[in-house]
Design a binder for these strands. Structure first.
Lengths: 343, 343
DNA sequence: ACGGATTGCGCAAACGATTGCATTTATTTA
DNA sequence: TAAATAAATGCAATCGTTTGCGCAATCCGT
């Protein structure tokens, strides 16, 4: 039974002996159609649960009306922060009558370009994107903009483009967290950060540095490392803890890294938080699972996603000027748990 | 500069002084157009990077060709297992030239119905769905089927519908895990399961029961609880551990619950795994974060997603018979870590 | 050199909806 | 009673592509 073909206005028109134009006007409640006819048509449509063919509507309006499909490009899907952001985007979008098309770049530039093209072809009304790690050319993004597809970046923004963006307040988040560590008595605070070519990495480092300065401390290069995952953390931390002047606290660029530090530090027989404090960044699933639970900077991915969708929809609907880039910063929040000393 | 309007065949036709029909045929390499014209048109199109308007194509073909948009309904997005599944679906879909439209039901029946309608309107070629927890009516699913939109369930299948589905081998997964617990010397194994109206809950319980039987043990009702989250686990476990005949092992329906048990058991001063073994189900982020690391049943969400997408695409493209429901079971794998004794 | 086959292309009708304009009929006004 | 006005509907073009059919022009064989 492939009677899957749906009822169209033509069907209604034929059945009721009127023209398609009349049906169209009646269904849009045009006053130029007589009351009785209008109601008859509406009732018939309702009873046979007619609904308009979006494809046809879109074709008709393609000149002036964008679709209601938002493209979302995400580097990975199995990832707490990106999931949260996706969640925020989905909520905001669906609240406002949009739907989302999701694609993952797998951190690949090539794939990112393909996805942009495909989304352009599929006529999304705009794209929300976090760049792949190995993206260093931006033609595909420029191409989209020139095709009239608005773009909003989140998390990994494109520094070369003056595009709209939503990021987390990495600087203040780190600054506050490190200040807290200092205020609870830590003096030698190690910093495990991401490679410095990423904007977020730089901002977090600056927050760390300025927190030290503010409290009359200085950056000890021996305590700063490039390290943003658990495996690396487990590899480099033992040496760190065997220095004559070992750190009494760690600030890590994400929870995963912090967990790596924690596991090593515990294994080496130190007490957390009495001997060593540890602070992460994310506040994902992991933070409440480790023992003791992780003190960390809440990244509020869902809020980031909502803001990004809000900007994009504003751009699409014209309530935001298309020429000026809208930049929003989502405040972070320090969540104090068991891996840091009490004041 | 809203020169966002794209080049159409009409533009090419006008420019090259031919008819639109000729352009169309030339671009589809029809031999009925002369070699030179064909190449001229193709070159012009390439140079001005023309690409066809999908909306128009779809309208034209709507009678016979489905779109290449797969609808995916997910109860939550910030959830390890569902993320993995989404990841699998995305991979398979994009490999085969489809894109995915993602919506979350928030575990709400109402929302699920809305989403189904919206997806129907937006002319997805099929839907992959895991039911919301409070869905107990299925008209919306039936409605889709009768509209010719194929449906594939994953994880939470619809028992009342004989629809295609992909599930994990809950029975064998649990059976093997519990057998392992027994073989490592556990005798009183508690079972924390989900409410029994969910199919997966029943299957896991059966696996538990049969593993006991197989080893000459019997089910002790006092050791079976409805509990599928951390908060509940932390609430009910202390009493469990204070029974005169306390359990020497726990099998939990998911990692989250297992973590709850672990934290309580440790807090009460028991040693894991010497005094108490614990086994979870999922193998998500959490499993390697807790201390000791969690022994758990790997659920292979990504594989589930891939299979689901494979079935759906098969249904859409007609390589799978539309009348017979395709049912696949993804094998699980026991991942032994630190919360269980060694053999 | 003429009839038939072949080649190359355009016309026009679809797909399903919208909308300016023309047309018909009914009603009012002078 | 004729003319002007208003009310209700239909015609046909449009969005961008595809495709059956027909029309010319060229080719071939005899």
């Amino acid at each position: 039974m492939d009677n899957s073909r749906h009822m169209t206005m033509k069907d209604i028109a034929r059945e009721l002996g009127v023209s398609v134009a009349t049906v169209s006007r009646a269904l849009s409640d045009s006053p130029s159609i007589s009351r009785e006819r209008r109601q008859a048509i509406q009732q018939y449509a309702r009873e046979h649960n007619y609904f308009p063919n979006v494809i046809a509507e879109q074709l008709r309006h393609s000149r002036h009306n964008p679709t209601r499909a938002i493209g979302v490009i995400v580097p990975e899907l199995v990832h707490y922060y990106f999931s949260s952001i996706l969640d925020g985007i989905e909520s905001e979008a669906s609240d406002r009558g949009y739907h989302i098309i999701v694609a993952k770049s797998n951190e690949s530039y090539e794939r990112e370009v393909q996805i942009c093209e495909a989304m352009l072809k599929n006529k999304v009304c705009g794209i929300i994107v976090s760049q792949a790690k190995d993206t260093e050319q931006y033609d595909h993004f420029l191409h989209l903009e020139s095709a009239g597809v608005p773009l909003v970046f989140y998390d990994r923004i494109c520094p070369a483009l003056n595009a709209s963006r939503v990021v987390v307040d990495d600087y203040m988040g780190t600054m506050n967290a490190v200040s807290y560590l200092i205020e609870t008595g830590c003096k030698r605070i190690a910093f495990y950060g991401a490679p410095m070519n990423m904007v977020i990495a730089k901002n977090r480092f600056n927050g760390y540095r300025d927190a030290l300065y503010k409290h009359g401390l200085t950056v000890d290069e021996g305590l700063v490392r490039i390290c943003d995952n658990r495996a690396d953390a487990e590899r480099i931390t033992p040496a760190m803890m065997q220095m004559e002047n070992r750190p009494d606290a760690f600030f890590a660029v994400n929870d995963e890294t912090a967990i790596g530090i924690l596991s090593v530090v515990k294994r080496l027989g130190f007490n957390v938080p009495d001997d060593v404090s540890i602070c992460g960044f994310t506040n994902g699933f992991r933070a409440t699972v480790c023992d003791p639970m992780l003190t960390t900077v809440e990244q509020r991915g869902s809020q980031v996603g909502k803001e990004a969708a809000d900007i994009l929809i504003g751009l699409v609907e014209g309530t935001l000027p298309p020429d000026r880039a809208e930049k929003r910063i989502v405040k972070t929040r320090l969540v104090v748990r068991g891996t840091t000393r009490h004041p």
